[in-house]
Design a protein around this nucleic acid. Structure first.
Lengths: 121, 121
DNA sequence: AACGGGAATGAAAATCATTTTCATTTGTGA
DNA sequence: TCACAAATGAAAATGATTTTCATTCCCGTT
């Protein structure tokens, strides 16, 4: 397995902690860094595995990566401008737990995301 | 502009109101219907414009279409054997609504999925 | 210093969903 | 029948992502 190239993470930070692999690539090129797209994809993949970054999807299906500082949270994403709000998911945790128990599942995790149009759009 | 081919909508219904363009295509082929992928994409696009179907994204980025107004459900997936259970998500609907209002979002939708180990695994 | 093996790298090719192009077919009204 | 707009679909184009594979880099060992 390959580990993440540190310049990728630092670029993602500089990008405002929110960019697609292609954007990270273009950014690094513009800054004169010499790196291949493949390495960027691998690095981002590895950062996702290590839960250092989160991955979401744009409306067009392109994957976007963002730094994921805190513990466990969910996202409220504007499908027009991509603006994202981190929200509490206490209700979800409970729901997931109840549903899992009800069907004999254990060792559970979950994903939940809300999308819509933000006030500005 | 092209209008939707009615067989596409009827197939989407038969698919349980939830499928990707590629899946609709395969389904129609299996049923002996003669239709091109292009027409399916165009029909689904048009159905989305007319707000007759909704479009979401799978984790892998593939677009999935579902009938609007269809009572949607969530999934409880075993990460070992892949077994899937459809579950109710009343709590989620409420949570999504509250969170959206709280942040001024409208026209919202959501995704939620629970994964873990099923009783057999 | 030379050697060896595993990890990292990236160019190029392969994949795959989706879109575009464009020539053909179909339907409809004059 | 004629003409023209809409519908259709095969094939090519696009664009993100993944895979392949040969090369380079790193590091500890002789």
């Amino acid at each position: 397995m390959s580990r993440s190239n540190p310049r990728v993470l630092s670029t993602l930070e500089r990008a405002g902690g929110f960019a697609s692999a292609q954007e990270v690539y273009r950014l690094m090129q513009r800054e004169g860094e010499s790196i291949g797209l493949t390495t960027i994809y691998r690095s981002l993949q590895s950062l996702v595995n290590d839960k250092i970054v989160d991955v979401l999807r744009r409306d067009d299906g392109e994957a976007i990566y963002r730094l994921c500082g805190e513990a466990h949270h969910h996202h409220l994403v504007c499908k027009s401008c991509g603006d994202t709000v981190e929200i509490e998911g206490g209700a979800i945790e409970k729901w997931a737990k109840v549903m899992a128990e009800e069907h004999g599942f254990r060792d559970i995790g979950h994903t939940a995301e809300i999308f819509g149009l933000c006030a500005k759009c």
